[in-house]
């Protein structure tokens, strides 16, 4: 049982902790956000390979665009954005991708080039490495942990119920035939 006082104290502690964290975060957060100022479009150009031949079909090119996020606020990938609700960015990124494809670059190379220009943010999903594993695995960990907790809970309930059954002497109630007949009728009655 949590008393009112304990709740307030815990809450107060949490608020102080969050506030100090936020204050600390505020100081550092000023400088790196500058890249989003102005347009935010960064051209990704590479000289065409010698004897360049297209390595990607249009469909494979679209698959690459599906791995790139549009820098506009639409939260969609470049392909979906340019084919559904085109903004000022996705057509330009599409043009860059087309040039790279024409220049003979492979899908991985194109993605790497974009990541170099924009940072990891341009990829629709983070690399599976380092801290990102936390992101990839947390849902499974949560479901696994939840399933484990549910299992433990069920086992505890089952044990408690078994104990109770042992404790309560299972003396049957004597019931008259008439009582049983009426009980039976009530159970068989079709109307719920």
């Amino acid at each position: 049982m949590v008393t009112r006082r304990r709740f307030v104290i815990t809450l107060g502690g949490a608020v102080v902790a969050v506030a100090t964290q936020a204050a600390r975060g505020q100081q550092g957060a000023e400088t790196p956000g500058a890249t989003m100022e102005g347009d935010g479009y960064i051209p990704v150009r590479r000289p065409p390979r010698a004897g360049a031949a297209k390595r990607l079909t249009p469909l494979e090119r679209d698959a690459v665009e599906r791995m790139l996020s549009c820098p506009c606020p639409c939260t969609l990938d470049v392909f979906t954005c340019r084919t559904s609700m085109p903004c000022g960015f996705s057509p330009r990124l599409h043009a860059d991708v087309v040039k790279l494809v024409d220049g003979g670059y492979s899908a991985d190379e194109i993605l790497a080039a974009f990541e170099q220009a924009y940072g990891e943010k341009i990829l629709m999903a983070p690399h599976k490495q380092g801290f990102n594993w936390v992101g990839w695995l947390a849902p499974f960990a949560a479901v696994g942990g939840g399933a484990f907790a549910a299992g433990a809970l069920i086992r505890r309930w089952g044990r408690r119920a078994a104990e109770r059954r042992m404790a309560a002497s299972p003396v049957p109630i004597e019931a008259s035939d008439d009582e049983m007949a009426r009980l039976e009728a009530a159970i068989r009655s079709d109307d719920p």
């Binding site: 003396v171 008439d178 009582e179």
Partner: peptide, 9 residues
């Protein structure tokens, strides 16, 4: 009819 004695439950 059906003795409902405390001891039986």
């Amino acid at each position: 009819d059906a003795p409902f004695v405390a001891g039986s439950v």
